[in-house]
Design a protein around this nucleic acid. Structure first.
Lengths: 127, 127
DNA sequence: CTGGATCCTCAATGATACTG
DNA sequence: CAGTATCATTGAGGATCCAG
């Protein structure tokens, strides 16, 4: 109680920043069915580079969202999985992902309309 | 159907990127109770600069999430409000905000523990 | 006075290549 | 396989200036 993201100094601001960190939403969603190895994550989250994924995983691990298990084998095997906290974050972040996938046409249409001020009926003030 | 954020080339990727864009979640949550003026937004979302807020508002407007109404008065008055699409996005983004506000202690504790490898009982492999 | 636009700086992000 | 190292690019942030 008492935390408010609208306050510049509230710790929740930092937390929200971390959640929004570019690839966090992908990692959380990618791990929803269980732990994955580093390479499997890179393969599943297309477009992420090893460097950035490493940074993201480290940060999420520090924040208690991920477990990292190094099996110390040869060849190396490391598995990343969601903690309970990470799984609780999966609920809202899955909803965000689903919203994105569901509303692509709406966004693309709106963007197209913003670009082409097509036959605007008329009369509207100035936008 | 058919959109998948895990694909690097999927348009939903762009949409998700926009949603994650640093201040979008704040703007959407700030407008949940109705339209606000530019200055009111700056005041409510503490820490955002006019420049960055302007950019965020423009982008969100292009994406069809916001309406911008210029009343062409003297002194100037411009109001920003959520479109139906923006309101639908409010649902998942409010959940994210609430998660952030609710789990601040968990994150801070985890970070503290990651920094101080305090008396770990023992026996755990290496994590 | 409100709602910006501009210029500059720097931290985060990304591409590419290489290593234990 | 699981990352690092290096370099280029982008975007956020701060300060300042401008127009109605």
């Amino acid at each position: 109680m008492g935390y408010n993201v609208m306050s510049a100094t509230c710790p929740s601001r930092v937390v929200l920043h971390r959640i929004g960190a570019r690839w966090t939403v992908f990692v959380v969603n990618a791990l929803e069915d269980g732990p994955l190895r580093f390479t499997a994550l890179v393969a599943r989250i297309q477009g992420v580079t090893p460097k950035v994924l490493t940074e993201t995983l480290r940060t999420m691990q520090e924040d208690g969202l991920l477990t990292r298990v190094d099996y110390a084998e040869q060849p190396p095997r490391v598995e990343y999985g969601l903690t309970d906290l990470g799984r609780s974050l999966l609920v809202p972040l899955r909803a965000v992902r689903e919203w994105a996938e569901a509303h692509v046409p709406d966004i693309l249409d709106a963007r197209e309309r913003a670009r082409n001020p097509v036959s605007r009926p008329e009369s509207e003030p100035t936008r």
